[in-house]
Design a protein around this nucleic acid. Sequence first.
DNA 1: GCATAACTTGAGGGTGTCCTCAACTTGTGA
DNA 2: TCACAAGTTGAGGACACCCTCAAGTTATGC
Lengths: 213, 213
Amino acid sequence: MPTGSRPLRADAARNRDKLLATAVRVFGERGLDAPLEEVARGAGVSIGTLYNHFPTREALLDAVLPHRIIALDQVAAAALADPDPWNGFVRFVEGLFELQSQDRGLNDALARRTPLSPEVLAACHRGFRHVDRLIERAKESGALRADFEASDLATLIWAMSQVIRQAMDTAPDLWRRCLSFFLDGLRADAAHPVPVPALTPEQLAAVLQGPDD
Amino acid sequence: MPTGSRPLRADAARNRDKLLATAVRVFGERGLDAPLEEVARGAGVSIGTLYNHFPTREALLDAVLPHRIIALDQVAAAALADPDPWNGFVRFVEGLFELQSQDRGLNDALARRTPLSPEVLAACHRGFRHVDRLIERAKESGALRADFEASDLATLIWAMSQVIRQAMDTAPDLWRRCLSFFLDGLRADAAHPVPVPALTPEQLAAVLQGPDD
DNA sequence: GCATAACTTGAGGGTGTCCTCAACTTGTGA
DNA sequence: TCACAAGTTGAGGACACCCTCAAGTTATGC
């Protein structure tokens, strides 16, 4: 990755690592708009050093978020390995929300509580690259309702993100209850007609990269 | 209401009204943390005048929000008038979310994106006073799943609030699609066992009045 | 009309965050 | 060992919002 850039001095590399580790912790605990001074203080360096390594908040997010998001890929892979397509689908969303419930930053990122850089969006693509198959498989098996589209997963994520965040401190498992209600509505034999079509790809893109509050 | 306080001078009363009207609009468009300067500007008065009438942001919210919240009471009443208990339940949540989709401030208030004053919480009590009956009735009729509790409505509101807010500008009806998935999971004949108990009243209170980000 | 209480005004002080940059410190290669 | 590039520092300017208050304006009752 650091193509062409000369290697960091030893102390600088140490500081950079310390900053990254602290950023993971702070963003995880406080969300993506945690004060950067807190990250610097946590890493034992001055705010100037932080900005020296990561000239903007976005740069720091780009260095921290993708890992967390790409972890979803493993969740999806494990889910695909489940022989039962419905179970696989359920395992994926449960795994996803479990990660979100441990990481306010990931929650922010997926619930779009902050604008996302191209890098982070790219990570999302990687993290979600198997979900189409996951969904298709579950539909073909007859377990998942036929009118559920991949874009509806985005909606589900927005919805659950808020539940997770809201109850994180008080009832950290509450989202499982909410999710199980929701999942019961996604089974093919529970399906009733739906009044509104799924988002078009353009609409989804618009919402994802939207003008943000 | 203005018990004991001497009447306002005519121009002051006009300004107050103008401020209230503008606050309804601005909070509705921009959410509950819209800059107060924008409200003042919109009302054609200086920021000092705003603070003269409403010494704190909370005072302004107290003057503006309860109306909007108590409107829920009428939605609930209309829903109770529906002879079909399930339809009544559905009408209530649809009506509620419709209001939220037209008013970012109401969305903020119900999704707890800002701490709520005792006055606003009282308004919530009034706005929701009939929903226990609404839910009970729907359960007794056998349409609503038996393990759905009133506190689960709070969860549903948190979930849908985020979907509504997210797509408000791009796909203002998307929430209906998400809701209909969710509602399909709330029908008694869709019910599968749920892994987590409902919030206790104490937990619900804790979340509602929680330490807020 | 006038005196006066009621009301309005907006510059300005406070806070919390962002990010910069000139002066300083320190690791490193010769 | 030392020169200097590399790295660090933190005070401070910019910004956006909060809210206040001393000085001005205006409605109102006499």
